[in-house]
């Protein structure tokens, strides 16, 4: 029994033909090329906005690119040695981690509580939700400058309020208070984001387990701890990862409120990269610092990709 050649297959035994493509390959090749045509726009997009800039940053971090040396010379890991493996970078990384940890705790606790309040749908909750979302819509630089003026130690409203209670504290001169100020500004702007996602997650929760817990005599805390939070876990984890990456890149609020001070107490890694690149024009150093932060954050990206199954 001989199998008939598939449609479109070429008879390789015909005299005068040098084509040695196996019978079943050509349609597959055509199909592959057609598929390539369909996916190529997205590949071009990924190349343009992802791979090329990243590759260029890697290249920059391995070359000496300054104003006085505009033609890049390959210097291996020198930029990393000079800009990343330093006490200054370690300090900036420490500051960034403080912002990430303090910011996440603040934003999740406050955001969750606000989401619970919204979820109760008490009278006026729609107006409250609208008002609570306003900070998220504002420009970070404007927010930073406003808070900076509010905390002006001579003329700011916070100073006046502190004075009523006999408190005298210069938030911009004390390292701990200055860091707290940055966390507060960032949290004020981003708590609504957390609240929104958690509230959305809550609306999709089934009522039965919560009612069962109530029947079993569980109070608010036990219901939250053992029923609501486990069910909200996927939403919480994704929100946490998004905020984690966002806070690690914090820049505008620091730039407009403390300028990295007092001293270097609020100097984050991104501010360090900005200074190297745009103030000192040491492009190689700036790229090395930015890539080091990206590498440090890689486990978070990895987790995010795994959890969202992208």
């Amino acid at each position: 029994m001989s199998a008939a050649p598939p449609a479109g297959a070429v008879d390789v035994h015909r005299p005068g033909r040098a084509d040695t493509t196996p019978p079943a390959r050509r349609p597959r090749l055509v199909a592959s090329l057609r598929a390539l045509g369909y996916v190529s726009p997205i590949w071009v997009f990924v190349l343009a906005v992802g791979i090329v800039p990243t590759g260029y940053a890697v290249w920059m971090s391995l070359t000496e690119q300054t104003l006085t040396a505009p033609y890049p010379a390959f210097v291996g890991l020198d930029n990393y040695v000079q800009a990343v493996f330093t006490a200054q970078f370690a300090g900036a990384l420490g500051v960034t981690l403080i912002f990430v940890l303090a910011g996440l705790i603040t934003q999740f606790v406050v955001g969750y509580l606000l989401a619970v309040c919204l979820h109760q749908q008490l009278r006026g909750f729609r107006i409250a939700r609208t008002i609570l979302l306003i900070p998220m819509l504002l420009t970070p630089a404007v927010v930073g400058l406003t808070w900076n003026f509010m905390f002006n130690p001579d003329l700011g409203v916070v100073q006046a309020i502190q004075g009523v209670f006999g408190i005298h504290a210069n938030w911009l001169a004390d390292p701990t208070l200055a860091r707290l100020l940055v966390v507060m500004v960032d949290s004020w702007m981003n708590v609504p984001f957390v609240m929104l996602l958690v509230a959305a997650g809550m609306t999709s929760l089934p009522e039965e387990p919560i009612e069962a817990a109530a029947i079993d005599g569980a109070g608010w805390w036990k219901t939250t701890r053992y029923v609501v939070l486990p069910m909200l876990r996927p939403v919480l984890v994704i929100t946490l990862l998004v905020r984690c990456v966002d806070i690690a890149r914090i820049f505008d609020h620091i730039f407009t409120t403390t300028q990295g001070g007092p001293g270097t107490a609020t100097q984050s890694v991104t501010l360090e990269a900005y200074n190297s690149t745009f103030q000192f024009f040491q492009f190689g150093h700036g790229a090395a610092i930015a890539l080091a932060l990206a590498l440090i954050m890689f486990p978070v990206y990895f987790l995010y990709v795994r959890l969202t199954k992208i």
């Binding site: 007092p262 100097q267 024009f281």
Partner: peptide
């Protein structure tokens, strides 16, 4: 010199640290 901006930055940060009692 082209390094002046970096020099000013380092000195400014350190003076600020001294002025606020950190150093």
């Amino acid at each position: 010199i082209p390094e002046t901006a970096q020099i000013i930055s380092v000195i400014s940060q350190t003076i600020n640290s001294m002025a606020t009692g950190q150093l």
